[in-house]
Amino acid sequence: MQSIRLDIEGTTTPVDFVYKVLFPYARQHVKEFLSQFYGTEEVQVDIRQLRNEQALDQQQKLTPPVWQDDSIDSRVESITTYVHWLMDQDRKSTGLKSLQGKIWERGYRSGQLRGQVYADVPPAFRRWSEQKKGIDIFSSGSVLAQKLLFQHTPSGDLTRFLRRYFDTATGPKMEPESYGRIARALGQAPSEILFISDVIAELDAATSAGMETRLCVRPGSPFPQSHSHPVIHTFDEISPSIM
């Protein structure tokens, strides 16, 4: 096994941190952020992405909030309402995730946010790096959000151990082709990659692409009843024999 690919939520990082800290922070600050940075090109890219997604939601009769274009103020209000709507559905929207990452960046830089990882994660990163294993992240959160989380942990900046980051721009996490794209991007055969996640559908997709997998069941997580993946509870259980 030449490299290890990791999910974040429920794998390296407690689910509660995502849902009780990061998501509420983004929700609380989205309107303020849009009002302040509306004119920047980076934010305009996200807005165009969100506008296209809202139009598609309308076409699919998903009843998204109405998008108002009468003025900048009404547009900001519309985007804020639509972002809240997407978050309420836990939508893995590329535009949403990109915008959230930018909002969180301000929180991390100001010290209002601090990344969280399980206690076994930093020593595992060091151990795998010493074994010359590439460590990559594949998360529905944007690449920016991934980097920020691992930069600002109580154990310091962990990004020095990480090789590459992949988000939903690569493709949905429950589709085998997404894992094939990542393997090709790294110039590796899928069989040389171990993917660790707490989501069975993601592991099934990785297996279909030819990767080895481990189901990560952290404390407090329900134990899935029907699956075919070896189970671990901490990264300490990754056997040296597969490395």
Rank of each mutant, 00 (worst) to 15 (best):
S93G: 12
T94S: 13
T94L: 14
T94A: 13
G95R: 00
G95A: 08
K97S: 04
K97Q: 10
K97G: 04
K97D: 06
S98P: 06
S98C: 12
S98V: 08
L99E: 03
L99T: 06
L99P: 00
Q100D: 09
G101P: 03
G101L: 08
G101T: 09
K102P: 01
I103Y: 03
I103H: 02
I103N: 04
I103Q: 02
W104Q: 01
E105F: 10
E105P: 04
R106A: 12
R106K: 15
G107Q: 05
G107M: 08
Y108P: 02
Y108I: 03
Y108T: 02
R109G: 05
G111I: 10
G111T: 13
Q112C: 11
Q112H: 13
Q112P: 04
L113I: 08
R114D: 11
R114C: 15
R114L: 11
G115V: 05
G115I: 04
G115F: 05
Q116H: 14
Q116V: 06
Q116M: 11
V117R: 00
V117Q: 00
Y118I: 01
A119W: 11
A119I: 04
A119M: 10
D120P: 04
D120R: 02
D120K: 01
D120N: 05
V121K: 01
V121Y: 01
V121R: 00
V121F: 05
V121C: 07
P122L: 05
P123E: 14
A124Q: 10
A124M: 12
A124S: 13
A124D: 06
A124V: 09
F125C: 03
F125D: 00
R126F: 12
R127M: 14
W128G: 00
S129Q: 15
E130K: 15
Q131W: 14
K133S: 06
K133A: 07
G134H: 13
I135P: 01
I135Q: 05
I135V: 15
I135R: 02
D136W: 08
D136N: 14
F138I: 03
F138A: 00
F138S: 00
S139T: 15
G141E: 02
G141M: 07
S142V: 05
S142T: 11
V143W: 07
L144Q: 08
L144D: 03
Q146Y: 03
Q146N: 14
Q146H: 09
Q146I: 04
K147N: 08
K147E: 14
L149N: 02
L149A: 04
F150V: 04
Q151I: 08
H152R: 11
H152W: 09
H152M: 06
